[in-house]
């Protein structure tokens, strides 16, 4: 299609929408930050934010809520990117929250630090006086997230009230808050998993190696393939297998599952995603399996 039709393709439209929101927040808030988990969506976010302010540096810091249960590849990637972008990194550590007695570690073989992150995050928001936090959540991920606004208001306890959200009209965003309250901002709300991968390919964005198919020692649990690591306790009948796998989402190692895959490059990943019959969270996240409304409940408490 020639440029004279004045039409943007879908990826360019999504990009423009996200950049608009990054700039809007940078203009209207005093202390924004970008939440970064090392997953593909945060990597995409970092890329979009870079584009929004180029040739200037990011006008806000990057916040990593660190469960301590990371994929080493992801931490390496994080540090490398932060250096390249000359950005400021703030790490909020779940381990520190545990040491300080703010939260207690779950026990048992299925213990995860997923839920503990909320306290660490909210403490860090208070300590740093963040008033706007960019998150890479997408509406197509999960049914509670499908209900999110671009600007999602959080009260002084960090709570989301899905039954009483502010109207959000056109692209006019209401960023007015009182002290102690904040806004979670989701610039990639309208992206699907496929859009993310197509864009990563179009932009040639580098991503951590765990997203590509590789051989790994894994075991079956609740229909998921979990990686063997220091952060999980295997029971006797959870036998180790060496399989060719990749990750569709990257989070805490103790609750993020891998999928069997042969996709070794972006083109193959896009083919795989186009034909998959299972959602990314359905395939890979133990944290969503607790109950039907697990995500909604966590979000109400202040989760990402």
């Amino acid at each position: 299609m020639s440029i004279t039709t004045y039409e943007l393709n879908h990826l360019d439209q999504l990009e423009a929408e996200a950049i608009h929101i990054f700039r809007e927040v940078a203009s209207e808030f005093e202390r924004p930050c970008l939440m970064f988990s090392g997953g593909k969506d945060s990597i995409l976010m970092l890329h979009l934010a870079t584009k929004a302010f180029w040739p200037a540096r990011l006008p806000f810091p990057v916040l990593h809520v660190d469960t301590g249960h990371n994929f080493p590849e992801v931490i390496e990637y994080r540090d490398q990117r932060i250096k390249e972008l000359e950005a400021r990194l703030v790490v909020a550590s779940v381990q520190k929250s545990i040491d300080e007695g703010r939260v207690t570690e779950e026990k048992g073989p299925r213990a995860s630090r997923n839920r503990l992150q909320t306290t660490t995050l909210l403490d860090s928001i208070e300590e740093n006086k963040f008033d706007a936090l960019f998150g890479g959540a997408r509406r197509d991920e999960e049914k509670a997230r499908a209900k999110e606004r671009f600007y999602s208001f959080r009260d002084e306890f960090g709570q989301w009230d899905p039954k009483n959200q502010r109207p959000e009209l056109w692209n006019l965003y209401n960023g007015r808050i009182r002290q102690g309250e904040h806004i979670r901002v989701f610039p990639i709300s309208n992206w699907t998993e496929l859009d993310v991968w197509q864009y990563i390919e179009q932009e040639e964005i580098e991503i951590p190696s765990v997203y590509f198919a590789h051989k790994r020692e894994v075991f079956q649990r609740d229909g998921m393939l979990l990686a063997d690591s220091d952060f999980v306790t295997r029971s006797e009948d959870e036998k180790l297998l060496t399989l060719k796998v990749r990750y569709r989402t990257v989070g805490d190692m103790s609750c993020t599952g891998a999928v069997e895959s042969e996709a070794e490059n972006l083109k193959q990943i896009i083919e795989e995603i186009s034909s998959t019959r299972i959602t990314e969270r359905g395939a890979t996240r133990a944290d969503d399996r607790v109950s039907e409304a697990a995500m909604e409940d966590r979000k109400k408490e202040g989760y990402f």
Partner: peptide, 18 residues
Amino acid sequence: GLRAEREQGITIDVAYRY
């Protein structure tokens, strides 16, 4: 997808789907 919506059998807020 919200708890309250399922309990009441009505839509309360916009859901976005793709």
